[in-house]
Every structure is written in C-alpha cells, then in structure tokens.
C-alpha cells in the first residue's frame, strides 16, 4: 500500500543500468591525492588573532559608537570641526588607528574564512581573495594616510 508522490519509473527515462545518470559529487571531496600538511602555523595565529582582536575591538568599537552616536548631543554633533578637534589629540589618533587596523584585519580574515567556506572552485576562491586583499590594503593605507596627514586648516 505504498502511496507514491512521484512516479519513479516512467517509460521515457533516459537512463538505464548501462547508462546511469551522473551522481552529484560532493564539493571538493578528499581523496588520496589531497595535499599533505603544509607545516605552518598560519591558521593557528589567524584563529588566535580573531579572538584577541575581538576582545580589544569590544572596547574600541563600543567606545567609538558611544562617543560618536550617543554622548554630547548624539550623531548631529558630528562635523568637520568635531573630527578636527578629536584628531588634534594623539590619544584619539592612536585609538582610531588601532581600531582601523584591528577591525580591517579582523574583518578581512573573517571574510577570508567565509570565502574558504563558500567558494567551490579554486579559481573563484583565488579571485575573491585577491579582491578582498586589494580592498583591505587600500582601505588600511588610505585610512592610515588620512589619520597622519589630516590638516584641520584645509579650505
């Protein structure tokens, strides 16, 4: 008394025992030819860095959001003068510089993980990571340049 939802065997089937349909291969499956260990600690340091930078980012990012968006009249106070005032102090320069570097490296390494997880073909992986690294280097360098060369008297 089987109630079939879909007919399994129809007369027009293209496949039979001598000519089976292709099976769906699992993505990037492990075989005897999978490369053996590379003997570096890169992934170990990456994993540690995510946790250590995360702890520092809790203070830096939440402090940043608090100052920028909540205290002293909230977001409406932000303007050229406010930024210029803060960056006159080496303390806030250092705060923003460390936050920039840690957040960018943390975010980039996180996205590297996401790409490793989701990209199936080696080519896609490679180019997505190149795009990621280019964007990261560009943003970090530009941000660093601005923090160090900011001119409050610019017209």
């Amino acid at each position: 008394m089987s109630a079939e939802t879909t007919p399994v065997n129809d007369a027009t089937s293209l496949y039979d025992a001598d000519n089976p349909a292709p099976v769906i291969e699992a993505p990037r499956k492990r075989t005897g030819k999978t490369p053996k260990t590379t003997r570096t600690n890169f992934e170990l340091y990456g994993w540690l860095f995510m946790r250590l930078s995360g702890i520092v980012l809790v203070v830096l990012v939440l402090g940043h959001l608090l100052i920028q968006l909540m205290l002293d009249g909230g977001v409406s106070k932000i303007g050229f003068a406010f930024v210029a005032g803060r960056w006159a102090s080496p303390f806030w320069q250092a705060w923003d510089l460390i936050m920039l570097w840690l957040a960018m490296l943390h975010g980039a390494n996180g996205l590297r993980t996401v790409i490793n997880d989701y990209a199936q073909r080696d080519n896609t992986r490679f180019w997505l990571k190149m795009l990621l690294y280019t964007a990261t280097v560009f943003t970090v360098l530009l941000g660093t340049l601005v923090i160090f060369t900011f001119d409050p008297n610019i017209r």
Binding site: S13, Y15, P20, P22
Partner: peptide, 8 residues
C-alpha cells in the same frame, strides 16, 4: 541513477 537524474 539508473532511472532518473533527480532525487524524489
């Protein structure tokens, strides 16, 4: 696979 390419 000897009957159809899709699972049902």
């Amino acid at each position: 696979p000897e009957v159809a390419a899709e699972a049902t």
